[in-house]
Design a protein around this nucleic acid. Structure first.
Lengths: 210, 210
DNA sequence: ATCCTATGTAGACGGATGTTTACTTGCAAC
DNA sequence: GTTGCAAGTAAACATCCGTCTACATAGGAT
C-alpha cells in the first residue's frame, strides 16, 4: 500500500543506456509545468476512479504521476480541490443522456448494462460510489450530479415534477455502484444481457414516465 | 469535530446534589459490564448511522457512551468488529420484505417513501451509504445485504433469475442513500407522497416481475 | 477486614496523512 | 557566462487514528 518511493535521485546516472525501467519515461525529464500538471491530473483520475476519494493519498497520486507531493498542492491547492477538478472533467453520462426523451430510458439502461458487461476499472459511477461519506467533497459530487445528470435529464422531461422523476432515475444509476462493489458482476449477469437491458429500461421508464 | 474530552475525574465530588449535568447519568456509576457494553453499542449504532464507518472514531464512540476508549476494544475487539456487530443487529428491512410476494413492490416503495417523508437521523440506508468505500467493512456490509435483503427477497420470488431481480430491486434501495445525502429530501417531495409511492411501486415491480 | 479479579482509566505507541517550508536546480533571457 | 525565476525536491510539521500496555480500584468472596 505504501513504499512506492521513487528513490531515483534524477541526476545521478544521467546516461542510462536505455530505458531499463518499466515505465517508459526519460531518465531525466524536461521541466514542463503543463505536462506535470497533466500527469498529476491523469494519475488522480485513475486512482480516484479505482479507490474513491478516501482510498487515495496524495503520496499515491504523486508516485503514480512520478512527481513530488508538494507539486500536487502547488498546482491544485488541496486534495479536495484536485478531486473537484477531476470530477469536473468527467462527461460520459452527459452524452448518454443527450439524444431526445423517447429513447432516454433505453439509453440509460444500456449504459448501466454496459458497465455490467465490461467491467471498467475506472468509471464515474465507481468513483461516485467509493467517494461517499466524505463531507469535504460533498459539494463537488453534488455539482457533478446536478450538472452532468439531473439538469440534462430535466431538460428532456415533459409533464409534472420533472426534477423528482430525474432523481428517481438517478437513484437507479447510483444504486448500481454499491451493488456492483459488494456483489460483483456475476450475479447481475445471471440472465442474458438483453433481458437485463429490457428490465432496466422498464425501471427507468417507470421512474421517468409523466 | 474533536474536544469532546470528558474531563470528569469521576471520583472527585462524589456527592453531586442532583444531576445538574445535561446527561441523566449518575455522578459515580456502578461497574456493570453488560450496561457498559450496551452503552457502547448504542453509541456506535447512533454514530455509525449518522456519519458512516469512516466518519466515526473510537474516541467519539467512547465519549458518546461515556466510557473509556480501551473498553471499546476490550468488549468488541476492533472498530471493524464493532461495526459488524452493529450491523448484525439491524433488521428493519427484513420485516418490510416479509409478507408475501404480491405486495412486495408496494411495501418496498412505502419503506422508501417513508424515509423521504420522515427524515430519520439514523437509518440503515444512511449507514450503508456513508460507509461505502471502506474495504475493512466490505464483508460486514455484504453479509448484511445478503442476509437481510437479497436472501429474503429471493425466497419470495418465482420465475427465472430471482437473484438478479432481487439485486435490481436492491439497486433502487441502495441508490436512495446517495441521492438523499446529496440532494436532500425536498426535491423528492416535489410531488405528493402518494404519487411518489406509486412511481416507486412501478419501479420495484419492473425490477422484480418474472 | 482482607484478597482477588474483573472493570475501568490514563497515557503512550506506531503509523499514516494532508500540508508546508526551506532548499536546490534546470532553463532561458540578458 | 551570469543571473533570476519558476519547476522540482527532501524533509519535516501537525494532527489524527486505532490499538495496546501498565496501572488503579470497585466490589464481591472469603
Amino acid at each position: 500500500m505504501e513504499a512506492i518511493q521513487v528513490d531515483d535521485p534524477a541526476g545521478v546516472d544521467v546516461d542510462t543506456p536505455a530505458g531499463v525501467d518499466g515505465d517508459a519515461r526519460p531518465a531525466v525529464r524536461k521541466r514542463d509545468r503543463e505536462a506535470t500538471r497533466r500527469r498529476i491530473l491523469d494519475a488522480a483520475r485513475d486512482l480516484f476512479g479505482q479507490h474513491g476519494y478516501g482510498g487515495v493519498t496524495i503520496r499515491m497520486i504523486a508516485a503514480e504521476a512520478d512527481a513530488n507531493t508538494a507539486l500536487v498542492h502547488r498546482y491544485f491547492g488541496s486534495k479536495a480541490d484536485l478531486f473537484a477538478e477531476v470530477l469536473s472533467g468527467e462527461s460520459v453520462l452527459r452524452g448518454v443522456i443527450a439524444g431526445g426523451p423517447e429513447g432516454l430510458p433505453r439509453r440509460l439502461a444500456e449504459y448501466f448494462a454496459h458497465q455490467v458487461e465490461h467491467r471498467s476499472v475506472t468509471s464515474v459511477s465507481r468513483l461516485l460510489d467509493r467517494s461517499a461519506g466524505h463531507p469535504e467533497v460533498k459539494q463537488s459530487l453534488l455539482r457533478y450530479l446536478e450538472d452532468a445528470i439531473v439538469e440534462p435529464m430535466v431538460a428532456q422531461l415533459d409533464g409534472p415534477n420533472p426534477r423528482a422523476r430525474a432523481l428517481l432515475a438517478s437513484t437507479i444509476l447510483m444504486g448500481g455502484g454499491p451493488v456492483r462493489r459488494l456483489f460483483g458482476l456475476n450475479d447481475l449477469r445471471e440472465a442474458d444481457p438483453d433481458e437485463l437491458t429490457d428490465r432496466l429500461t422498464a425501471m427507468f421508464t417507470a421512474a421517468l414516465a409523466p
